[in-house]
């Protein structure tokens, strides 16, 4: 097929084609330098021993040794498990809260900017700041959470030093931080729904709840999917907020995969093993993303 096409190209078309490739080349080269080369280097590293604290060992090729080590590494298993828990809690959490925020922001307020600003601010705040702010909230002595508990006559809780509570506190911070992004995506989706649908429903005597279930939700499906995909991909990479709030503690009980990779590579200087872990994370995120994409493709009638 492609041979046939190439055969039929006129000289002019051929030169147009060359020009096209030439014009794409700079972008491709840039992309290659900042994306493809690092990924190739990462994969190459993952098959080598490369530990900067032991330079006398050199960087010998070790085959799948780093991967085998990861499969038997309890801490890697725990980090994967924690990351999955964060995904399972914070992705639906952010979508539900984000939907509420989007519906609120879509109300016909006379002055729109305070609502929009309120939506944008958490999103614009750097992640690590959000983490620090929530750490202060949940600190044992000075934190506002324990101040409220004391005020109500309860015993203060060890929010950041007991695993269950720390997980809860971190999830809360992540949902607060990420639901505004979801809300922005959904708000854009809401605004594409024609008003006439609701007017027609109103005429037919549909309640607000029926309008929401029969018009808003189905019309919003594509936007919800986009939000879900983006939120899931960032959830797989969860790093900043638990890093700032607990640094993975108590023990390693809130450590995510991205944090373990950071620790292995930057703190321990074990570039070989860290690269193998990063490749594994890349695979996990590729699998989850492709599952989503397949699901969206299976759902053609909704556009």
């Amino acid at each position: 097929m492609s041979d046939a096409i190439r055969h039929r190209l006129t000289p002019l078309e051929k030169s147009e084609r060359r020009l096209g490739f030439a014009m794409l080349a700079p972008a491709f080269l840039l992309l290659a330098a900042v994306v493809l080369y690092p990924i190739a280097e990462l994969i190459r590293n993952s098959f080598h021993f490369n530990h900067l604290a032991q330079p006398w060992m050199g960087t010998p090729f070790v085959g799948f040794e780093n991967y085998v080590k990861a499969l038997g590494d309890d801490r890697f298993h725990e980090a994967v498990w924690h990351t999955l828990l964060y995904i399972l809690v914070t992705v639906p959490g952010a979508v539900v809260i984000g939907l509420g925020l989007a519906l609120l922001a879509n109300q016909p307020f006379r002055v729109k900017w305070p609502v929009r600003l309120g939506l944008l601010l958490p999103w614009a705040l750097p992640l690590v700041f959000a983490g620090l702010i929530f750490r202060w909230f949940f600190e044992y002595n000075q934190g506002i959470a324990n101040a409220m508990l004391r005020g109500l006559g309860f015993e203060p809780l060890n929010w950041l030093t007991s695993p269950g509570l720390a997980f809860f506190a971190i999830c809360l911070a992540i949902i607060w931080k990420s639901s505004s992004f979801v809300a922005l995506v959904l708000l854009a989706g809401l605004q594409t729904i024609p008003k006439s649908f609701y007017e027609a429903a109103e005429v037919d005597g549909a309640t607000k709840w029926q309008q929401f279930r029969e018009i808003t939700l189905p019309m919003l499906r594509p936007a919800i999917f986009v939000a879900l995909i983006f939120r899931t991909i960032t959830a797989i990479q969860t790093f900043d907020i638990p890093y700032a709030m607990t640094n993975g503690g108590p023990g390693n009980s809130t450590e995510t995969l991205a944090m373990y990779i950071h620790k292995t590579t930057i703190d321990f200087l074990d570039l070989g093993y860290g690269s193998a872990l990063a490749v594994l994370m890349f695979l996990v995120s590729a699998v989850i993303t492709s599952l989503y994409l397949r699901h969206t493709r299976r759902d053609p009638g909704r556009h």
């Binding site: 604290a53 007991s162 695993p163 503690g249 108590p250 023990g251 009980s253």
Partner: peptide, 21 residues
């Protein structure tokens, strides 16, 4: 030379114990 790893193992386990986990 691998002190950063040694330290991390000791302090996270000590921390987990002190936290009661």
């Amino acid at each position: 030379p691998r002190y950063t790893e040694v330290s991390e193992i000791m302090r996270t386990n000590m921390n987990a114990f002190l936290a009661g986990t």
